[in-house]
């Protein structure tokens, strides 16, 4: 489980200022904001644009281009289940259906109680121990339904 600071534009401004002089600073800034707050609030966009001398559209464009960046907070737990070919060959699609049914959400969704966000990931580089997943940044592999259920139980589901 990950805990994040509540969104605060002043501390966000400090994070942005700290990295602004890096060449190509936008991605490192967005990563740093997400690491601190768990997501990047809309309020940050004009501030980043102003500090980096970019248009707000450019900042928004980058933020929305990359799958990693969140525009709203995720659940307390994030389960990323690999759905790429190697995991498919070891039954990940059945596992994905099982996870979605158990959590009663579709991929990309968050459970009603806000405990788990379920996301697809296209390869964790754990293809030799497929199927694989990442729960709150921790990697798990050789998954089956029983192992997945144990993981979800730990996440309160």
């Amino acid at each position: 489980m990950s805990s994040y600071a509540p969104w605060d534009i002043e501390s966000a401004r400090a994070i942005i200022a700290e990295k602004q002089s890096m060449p190509g600073a936008l991605l490192p800034i967005l990563h740093a904001l997400q690491e601190e707050f768990g997501y990047i609030d809309r309020e940050a966009e004009p501030v980043i644009a102003d500090i980096l001398n970019l248009s707000r559209a450019e900042v928004h464009g980058v933020l929305t281009f990359y799958h990693d960046f969140r525009q709203k907070p995720a659940a307390r737990h994030v389960l990323k289940l690999c759905r790429a070919e190697s995991c498919q060959a070891r039954g990940s699609e059945a596992l994905a259906a099982h996870a979605a049914a158990r959590l009663r959400i579709a991929f990309g969704g968050t459970t009603a109680d806000g405990s788990v966000t379920l996301e697809p990931v296209y390869c964790l580089g754990l293809c030799s121990v497929s199927p694989a997943a990442m729960l709150d940044g921790r990697v798990v592999a050789r998954l089956d339904e029983r192992k997945l259920d144990t993981l979800l139980a730990k996440a309160g589901r």
């Binding site: 190509g24 991605l27 490192p28 967005l30 990563h31 281009f65 990359y66 799958h67 990693d68 960046f69 990931v121 296209y122």
Partner: peptide
């Protein structure tokens, strides 16, 4: 080291 952001 620079870190990507999930774009294949």
């Amino acid at each position: 080291v620079r870190v990507g952001a999930g774009a294949y």
